[in-house]
């Protein structure tokens, strides 16, 4: 890994994100909505960070997956990735550069949620830790989709249903017990539970195990797709 190359990819990606509304909105929409709902909507009986944890869990399931898949698929479709790879950029350097960039932007969004939720100390660590684990899982799924797809349209056809499942399942499981019993094996639902208990209780070992297994599965899928794609 050459830092010079990764730095160049970050710089390019940052400039591109600012001009790419479809990707840019992924990073700011849900944090902005969470902050807005937290301060503007008050419903009696709801926990104080109800909207923060709900939108943060949706964010985990949506932003990293959609943006990573979209960036990779667009680079393949427009042949810009081919030009990078033929300029002595290694596929690993490119994927690490874009992945780390998306991860950091998503964590900036996570920090907005944490700040709006008023988390401090161990609660803040748990909140950010849960967000980081969820973002990592989504990121790997997005990277697998982006690497697999030939173009953005193909990527969207996979990303949209998966994103809907991952981002809306935590919310739907609150209203339906049957959904909840199945959803507890999905990382985004366990991330939401961890966010809800941040600052109050420790991390449930079952929840941590589910997230770890989900990340592991995402790594296996990504490695399989990466090898088949022969980007190197």
């Amino acid at each position: 890994m050459r830092l010079r190359i990764i730095g160049a990819i970050w710089k390019k990606q940052w400039k591109d994100t600012l001009k790419n509304k479809a990707v840019f909105i992924q990073f700011i929409m849900l944090p902005a909505l969470g902050v807005f709902m937290k301060h503007m909507v008050s419903v009696e009986g709801l926990p104080p960070n109800y909207f923060i944890t709900m939108f943060a869990a949706m964010y985990v399931g949506m932003a990293p997956m959609v943006s990573m898949a979209s960036i990779l698929a667009e680079e393949k479709e427009k042949h810009t990735l081919r030009m990078l790879l033929m300029s002595n950029v290694k596929a690993g350097e490119y994927l690490f550069g874009v992945g780390a960039y998306v991860f950091l932007l998503c964590m900036a969004g996570a920090a907005v949620f944490a700040f709006a939720g008023g988390y401090t100390g161990a609660g803040l660590a748990q909140f950010l830790g849960a967000m980081a684990a969820g973002v990592a899982a989504s990121l790997l799924i997005g990277a697998a989709i982006g690497t697999w797809s030939r173009n953005e349209m193909a990527a969207n056809s996979l990303t949209v249903p998966l994103m809907l499942v991952c981002s809306f399942l935590p919310m739907l499981s609150m209203f339906n017990e049957k959904i909840a019993s199945a959803a507890r094996f999905v990382y985004s639902c366990q991330v939401q539970t961890m966010l809800k208990t941040a600052g109050a209780e420790g991390i449930d070992p079952f929840g941590a195990a589910v997230v770890a297994v989900n990340i592991l599965c995402a790594i296996v899928i990504f490695r399989f797709v990466y090898r088949r794609s022969r980007l190197d």
């Binding site: 390019k12 400039k15 591109d16 001009k19 790419n20 427009k78 042949h79 810009t80 081919r82 030009m83 033929m86």
Partner: peptide
């Protein structure tokens, strides 16, 4: 130095 069938330029940059 390469100029291929598709220019591979970043459209928004």
């Amino acid at each position: 130095g390469l100029v291929l069938d598709n220019t591979g330029l970043y459209e928004r940059l």
